[in-house]
């Protein structure tokens, strides 16, 4: 292979991997909440964006990237707890809560979008975080920043950890039990509401982390929220609600689709391709490709 080809291939690989890992992470957050608690949260894209914007403000105020990330994660935890206490727990016992919750969170999406455009929208139009680590590593002829390599590693580690948690840990087993049969699980002594709360917190935190990692790797603007929301839902539907493995595989496929299609067609054709995949999936196999 010539250097020129190698350059394009390496850049495609790196973009596909990073995008895929972040897609997978956010979709994992969404899928944990939806698959376990049956709450489709349409505002997850705005939470993703909130994390990124908060980190941008903190680093702008002079904090280091690492410190900012830890603060934002803590903030996210507090916020999710508050939201759970204020709004989400009211829906736990509502049967057929899907549409109600979806519409409710669409309302929340609009509120957050309005607030963002009145605040951050006035301060800047595109945002970047200072890198966690500096320097570049040459992959063949392609220079990849160490920062992006670190982002990729963090995303993969968190994905693996949440997969293991759901598969092997006691909490994960309780969670799957609640999902399969809430009454039976309650009879066997599982605290259903506690499991719901845990899942919501875990899912939200993962989405927050996804926003932070995206902001570290790329520059972003306010429109990223909506794109990410729809993408995460698409991945969840195709991968199967509740399946972290499905989120990982499908997220990677979408990431690489984005990178590859944008070479051969245009950066925009990629978006179509995975939305169409989701539509086809919804029509022909709404339960998704992977079991939880």
């Amino acid at each position: 292979m010539s250097d020129a080809t190698l350059l394009v291939v390496a850049s495609t690989l790196s973009t596909g991997l990073i995008l895929g890992a972040i897609f997978a992470l956010v979709a994992a957050g969404v899928t944990i909440v939806y698959g376990c608690v049956w709450l489709p949260n349409a505002s997850n894209g705005q939470f993703f964006l909130l994390a990124a914007l908060a980190a941008w403000s903190l680093t702008g105020a002079g904090l280091g990237s690492a410190a900012a990330i830890i603060m934002v994660l803590l903030l996210g935890l507090v916020l999710s707890l508050g939201l759970e206490w204020l709004l989400v727990r009211r829906l736990y016992d509502v049967p057929n809560r899907n549409v109600a919750c979806f519409v409710l969170t669409l309302g929340l999406t609009q509120i957050m979008a309005g607030i963002f455009s009145m605040t951050w929208g006035r301060w800047s139009d595109q945002y970047t975080l200072p890198p966690l680590v500096s320097g570049i590593t040459m992959i063949g002829p392609f220079p990849m920043t160490n920062n992006r390599i670190l982002v990729l590693l963090i995303a993969l580690v968190v994905l693996a950890a949440s997969f293991a948690l759901l598969r092997y840990h006691r909490y994960g087993r309780a969670l799957r039990a609640v999902f399969q049969n809430r009454e039976a699980a309650a009879l066997r002594g599982v605290d259903v509401r506690a499991v719901y709360r845990m899942s919501f917190l875990l899912g939200s935190s993962i989405i927050f982390l996804g926003g932070l990692l995206f902001a570290l790797a790329y520059s972003f603007d306010l429109t990223v929220a909506w794109t990410m929301s729809v993408t995460a839902f698409a991945i969840m539907i195709v991968g199967g609600p509740g399946s972290v493995l499905g989120a990982l595989v499908v997220g990677m496929v979408f990431g690489f689709t984005q990178a590859i299609v944008s070479i051969f067609a245009s950066p925009t054709a990629a978006t179509f391709s995975y939305l169409l995949a989701m539509l086809a999936m919804l029509l022909f196999k709404p339960t998704g490709l992977f079991l939880r």
Binding site: L7, V8, A10, S11, T12, F220, I263, P267
Partner: peptide, 14 residues
């Protein structure tokens, strides 16, 4: 609303 041009920059460079 694009946020990254890594692949395209590599294409141009190539």
């Amino acid at each position: 609303g694009s946020s990254d041009a890594t692949v395209q920059a590599a294409q141009v460079r190539a």
